[in-house]
Computed example of a mutant assay.
Amino acid sequence: MVFILATLIGVVAGLRAMMAPAAISWAAHLGWLRLGDTPLALLGYSWTPWILTLLALGELVTDQLPSTPSRTVPVQFGGRVVMGALSGAAIGSPSGSPTGGAMAGAVGAVIGTLGGQAARANLASAFGKDQPAAFLEDAVAILAALAIVMVLP
């Protein structure tokens, strides 16, 4: 179950890079994810979820800008994989599997990045413009992140 959740949070990172660590940080801060004795305890500190939430909100805004680069350019793609791996490692840490969680999160981020791009392109084509597809992708990322942290073991 841990690796499935780590993969799924990676998919969220592939859709919106900062949404995954923000959700994980809130889960850790609220005590839903026990990171207190791990190297990732920083995610549960009192100020971390607020900072990551601001970054996630900023990403939701900048994603709507026409000047925002594609999620598949190296920096964007790499950032999503790193955030997916970090978030997956956090999910795996309480059970002693941070490396496996990180690998699952990274794989999920690749799936989310490529799958999200394809789905958004198809939706944008169906809608005749990108903005409704982007808003739908935002909603999927937010709801998926919430669902994942609410079922953490």
Rank of each mutant, 00 (worst) to 15 (best):
L40P: 06
L55E: 07
R16H: 09
A119L: 15
H29D: 11
I142H: 00
I4V: 13
E59N: 07
L143T: 14
A41H: 05
W50Y: 14
S70L: 12
N122I: 00
L35Q: 03
A89F: 02
F77L: 13
Q131A: 13
A41P: 00
P94G: 07
A20V: 06
A85G: 11
S25G: 04
S46K: 10
P98A: 07
G58Y: 09
A104N: 06
V2F: 09
A109R: 00
M18I: 08
L55Q: 07
V75E: 13
T113E: 00
L86H: 01
L30V: 14
G88S: 02
H29M: 14
L86V: 08
V75C: 11
L136Q: 04
R34A: 14
Q64R: 15
R16M: 05
V81M: 12
W50M: 14
R16C: 01
M150W: 08
G79R: 06
L136M: 12
L5T: 08
M18H: 07
G36K: 06
E137R: 04
I51V: 09
T72D: 12
L43N: 01
D138C: 03
A90G: 04
A106V: 11
D37C: 08
V110H: 02
G36Q: 12
I4D: 05
A133G: 06
P39E: 07
S95Y: 15
V110T: 11
A89N: 00
P74V: 02
E59W: 09
F77A: 10
A126R: 11
T38D: 04
L35E: 02
G92H: 03
A20L: 07
L123D: 03
G101F: 10
G101E: 05
A20N: 04
F135G: 12
L123T: 00
A13N: 01
T7Y: 10
A147R: 01
G96C: 05
V2A: 12
A139G: 09
M19S: 11
A85L: 09
R80S: 11
D138E: 07
V82G: 01
I91E: 00
L8R: 00
T62K: 12
W47T: 02
G78S: 10
G116L: 02
L152T: 08
G58S: 08
M19Q: 14
